[in-house]
């Protein structure tokens, strides 16, 4: 999966969890929680969705590595 495909999938997953998010204007460098109305339950659902989509068993201690679009893509590229 190339970078563009990963990015699209991550954004789609975000859109499913927070349908009101304007996916076209997500700042890839800024953390999701700073720019969207998502709480810890939403974030857990997002991590679960990443796990299902990319088969990435993300330890809780690594959650901070998946906080923004750019960091997500970087991490998922390595899987």
């Amino acid at each position: 999966m190339n970078e563009k495909e990963i990015k699209e999938k991550v954004l789609n997953l975000l859109g499913e969890i927070a349908p009101e998010v304007d996916l076209e204007n997500v700042d890839p460098k800024v953390s999701f929680r700073e720019q969207m109305d998502i709480d810890s339950m939403d974030y857990l659902n997002f991590v679960i969705a990443l796990d299902e989509e990319f088969e990435a068993e993300i330890p809780e201690s690594d959650y901070t590595k998946f906080m923004s679009l750019n960091s997500c893509v970087e991490q998922l590229k390595q899987i």
Binding site: L44, D51, E60
Partner: peptide, 17 residues
């Protein structure tokens, strides 16, 4: 909680709330 969650699968993890 961090220790507890380390032993749980993603779907079973607990949030502090």
């Amino acid at each position: 909680l961090a220790e507890e969650n380390a032993n749980r699968s993603i779907k079973e993890r607990i949030i502090y709330s």
